[in-house]
Amino acid sequence: MRIVVQADRFDPGAELNRFSAPLEGMGAVVSFSGIVRQNAAGDLLAMEIEHYPGMTERAIRTIAEEAAGRWTLGDVLVIHRYGALAPGEPIMMVATASPHRGDAFEAAEFLMDYLKSRAPFWKKETTRDGADWVAARAADEDALDRW
């Protein structure tokens, strides 16, 4: 299990290859890469992400360990960035490996839903008109109900 919280940009393809290379006996690898998307107005300059070092990694590890306890997983990878990120940049990545695809898909979705709503990150959108903190979305909270 690898949990990384970093400012540096990462290459999702290279990370997926690194994650997959040592796996044995796994029949499925599922990955998701989140990208900073442009806002509806088209004027997003940066998504600024803040976190508390140590606390954030522990919280993500707890979520990943719960996933590993619920599904048969050979490995888990979570990468999440912080700092000022431009539209189009990778912001996060989740990868799960399992002997069976169902477990890999479900565990990856579980991780993504919980990371979106429960990981201690604070996001601020900076546009030409200033900066505003991003509020929690009801749809993200509702996604947790299925777990």
Rank of each mutant, 00 (worst) to 15 (best):
F19N: 06
P22F: 11
S33R: 09
E15Q: 05
R37C: 11
E15Y: 01
D11N: 04
R2W: 13
M1N: 11
N17S: 13
E15D: 07
G27Q: 10
V30K: 13
S31I: 12
I35S: 06
Q38R: 15
V5G: 05
V4P: 08
S20G: 11
G27C: 11
A14T: 06
V5Q: 03
P12F: 02
R37K: 12
P12H: 01
A28Y: 14
M1Q: 06
A7D: 00
A7C: 05
S33D: 10
G34E: 03
F32T: 07
V30T: 12
E24K: 15
R18T: 09
S31C: 13
P22V: 09
F19S: 05
G34T: 02
V30N: 13
Q6N: 08
V5M: 02
A14Y: 00
P12D: 01
S31D: 15
R18L: 11
A14I: 06
A28H: 15
V30L: 13
G34P: 08
G13E: 07
R18Y: 06
I3T: 08
D8S: 11
V36T: 04
D11K: 06
V36N: 05
F19G: 02
F32L: 12
S20D: 06
L23E: 07
V29G: 09
G27W: 12
A21Y: 07
G25M: 10
Q6V: 02
L23W: 03
N17V: 14
M1W: 10
R18P: 06
V4E: 15
I35D: 04
L23C: 06
Q6T: 08
A21S: 11
S20T: 13
R9H: 07
V5N: 03
L23V: 06
N17G: 15
I3F: 07
G25R: 08
V36A: 04
G34H: 02
F19L: 03
A21K: 12
L16W: 00
P22I: 08
D11S: 04
A7P: 05
F32P: 09
S31N: 13
S33G: 12
V5H: 00
V4N: 05
Q6A: 06
A14H: 00
E15C: 01
F19K: 06
F32H: 10
D8L: 01
A14C: 04
G27M: 10
M1L: 11
G34R: 05
S33V: 13
V36G: 03
L23S: 04
P12T: 01
G13S: 04
N17K: 15
S31A: 14
M26P: 07
D8E: 14
S31V: 10
P22A: 12
E15F: 04
V29P: 12
Q6L: 03
V5T: 05
E15K: 00
R37T: 06
I3W: 04
D11M: 02
G13L: 01
G13Y: 00
V5E: 00
Q38Y: 15
G34A: 02
P22Q: 13
V30H: 11
L23P: 05
F32A: 09
V4G: 05
A7Q: 08
V4Y: 09
M1T: 07
M1S: 14
F32G: 07
P12I: 00
I35E: 08
S31Y: 13
D8R: 10
M1I: 09
R9A: 12
A14E: 11
L16R: 07
R9W: 01
D8M: 00
G34V: 04
Q6E: 03
R9M: 09
I3P: 08
E15R: 03
G34I: 02
F10S: 02
L23F: 08
E24V: 15
F19Q: 01
